[in-house]
Design a protein around this nucleic acid. Structure first.
Lengths: 111, 111
DNA sequence: CGCTAATATTAGTTTAGTCTAATATTTATG
DNA sequence: CATAAATATTAGACTAAACTAATATTAGCG
């Protein structure tokens, strides 16, 4: 599943925004999303699964709870895809500064 | 229409990739997309319209041709949305370097 | 072990998006 | 001005994604 397909859904984006602030249990996520979108626990759980399967989030068990965390790999793909457009809004940034700021070379070759 | 909804479609992403390399006529875009996706001129034209309407692309007339160009505004929105995740893959980059590299403060306040 | 809390899964319905086929519009040209 | 070339639009068919309702699973606890 392409990164952008995953991010195309507002509920999934909201969940990721929440996870960006730190780990959260499934119940926490359900509470927030339910309040804001008015959908069922089932629907939220399904979206969490999509995020897991697509590699945007990871889970660990804590008793009967499931603790979700953001998994940055796929989000960096999006960041990389944007590279081809950065010249449009960062026209006068020299090459070295770009390399330093975005850690591009290392990232690309290391993993 | 949310930026990510627009980018959720592979044809639209491909068109933007093409426009990232410079202006192209509708016909050029149709040729490339048709070869790679096997869809009709009509379908491509509809996608171009979506990109226009959503502010991802602009058009100008050149005789009977329509010349498309990428419009960076909406793509920067995506870049901005990613800010909240950058700490995950740029953990030791100091604040000033980030500001310089991403031109964030200026961008946010100017428009 | 039986019950409760937390979460996940499944089946089926609804909805939104993308496509094709057909047609319309616009500009240039003989 | 009639025709052709380039592109856009419309209506309707098809598909994939997201939802609900119901049920299943798993862990902790008395």
């Amino acid at each position: 599943m392409h990164a952008f397909d995953v991010l195309g859904d507002p509920v999934r984006r909201r969940i990721l925004e929440l996870l960006a602030t730190g780990e959260h249990s499934s119940g926490d996520v359900v509470a927030v999303v339910q309040r804001e979108f008015g959908i069922t626990q089932s629907a939220v759980s399904q979206q969490l699964r999509i995020l897991r399967d697509a590699g945007f989030a990871s889970v660990r068990a804590d008793g009967t709870r499931r603790i979700y965390a953001v998994e940055p790999r796929r989000l960096r793909e999006v960041d990389d895809w944007l590279d081809r457009f950065r010249a449009f809004w960062l026209p006068r940034l020299d090459a070295l500064a770009t390399e330093v700021a975005r850690g591009k070379r290392k990232r690309r070759h290391r993993e």
